[in-house]
Computed example of a mutant assay.
Amino acid sequence: MKTAPAPLAVARTEGARIILEDGRELVDGIASWWTACHGYNHPHIARAVADQLARAPHVMFGGLAHEPAYRLARRLAQILPGDLDHVFFAESGSVSVEIAMKMAIQFWINRGVQGRSKFVSFLGGYHGDTLATMTICDPEEGMHGLFAGVMPAQHVTALPVDEASEAALDALLRERGGEIAALIVEPRVQGAGGMLLHDDEVLRRLRRLADRHEVLLIFDEIFTGFGRTGDLFACLGAGVTPDIITLSKALTGGALPLSAAVANRKVFEAFWSDDPGAALMHGPTYMGNPLACAAANASLDLFEDGAWRGEVARINTALAQGLAPCRDAKGVVDVRTLGAIGVVEFDHVLDSGALSQQFAALGCWIRPMGRVIYLTPPFVTSDAELDRLTGAVHKVAGLG
């Protein structure tokens, strides 16, 4: 708080732009942390929220329910792969991961298996800032080192990107499987850990290992879900179905906070019992919020026509071409793209605050993290706006 630059005061938003109180317009290169996939102030989402606001902005989701939540749960079950049919709503992504972890632990308890309370997660991974999620983030590259030892340590290891690392994970699961509830991974892209890409074979290896050692598999698609990697969900494109999936970010098109942990039938059946003690006792105050569910249903309407696929492909081409010259910049070690994601990685940690100010002076909102400058723009970003974003990266990288 003492050393960070003062935040920029925002007056309003429109499309892919943030309009500041001083009149400046910034092309948003990161879609407000990847949420505003359809752009800001989309009229279809705005109308749905306004209509719901006139009916009921909120009711508790305990002993009461409402059609927007039921409709959204049905639709998610229809578009997710396999039998991921059982939806638990919350407000934030971190909380949905905590719920998924809680589900996985209680799955074993309800089945009469004791001691399975640990998780395997992966170097480069990031799953949230709440206490339990911090334990499954990368302990070295993440931002939670101060809290080492506060919560029980988990198994954070290398992704199985080749035969050697697959064998190492296989050995870990063989040796410690009796204490492990689940594996958890961000499929295709480890987002806040550095926009690190891995191919779909990694996910197939994880599914095989989870089945071999009888542990659950959780996919954290809070970043990758809803079109960001080029498929509606990364697991769909990879052809790999987890036991639990977590969703948030673009779920409502960036209009309101909402998240979900969605479980398959096997997980659900461990909680289906005449014993009330087998229930998943978790109740976020705003779980299933009607306004947020209305926004999410409207966002799913926009995904249904499929136009987003062409937009993501267009953005991918623009980012690949526009960022390619950055390979020649001093200190750049990699330039990579996937779907509507573009990344320039440096050999040193960047000063995010200072660089954000430089980008703002160039008419862009781009906020580097760690060693990367990344672009994850709204899908409605125009070609001219994409040129501005990539041109700003050129200049800040020392090429302009």
Rank of each mutant, 00 (worst) to 15 (best):
A295D: 10
W272H: 14
A181V: 08
F89G: 10
N264V: 06
E67F: 01
L196W: 00
G128T: 10
V335Y: 10
D274L: 12
W365N: 15
A255I: 00
T35S: 15
I79W: 04
H155S: 05
N41F: 00
D220K: 00
L217W: 01
G331V: 12
W34N: 14
R17F: 04
H127N: 11
E186S: 15
L256T: 04
D275K: 00
G288K: 03
A294P: 06
G310K: 04
T13D: 04
H38Y: 07
A192H: 13
G63V: 10
L146W: 11
G331K: 03
I18E: 06
L350E: 08
A104I: 09
L216K: 01
D162Q: 04
S356K: 03
G62R: 14
R24K: 09
T3F: 02
R336I: 08
I136M: 05
S248D: 11
Y286S: 14
P68C: 07
R371Q: 13
V87C: 10
D28Y: 06
P187D: 11
K2C: 06
G277E: 14
A73E: 13
R336D: 13
I244W: 08
H394L: 07
L209N: 12
H282L: 06
F226V: 10
T157N: 03
E91I: 10
E345Q: 13
G149K: 03
H348D: 09
F226G: 11
G177P: 09
D275H: 00
A168M: 04
V396Q: 05
R111D: 04
S92L: 13
Y286D: 13
Y126G: 05
S96R: 02
E21A: 13
G178W: 02
I341A: 01
K266W: 07
P152F: 14
H282T: 11
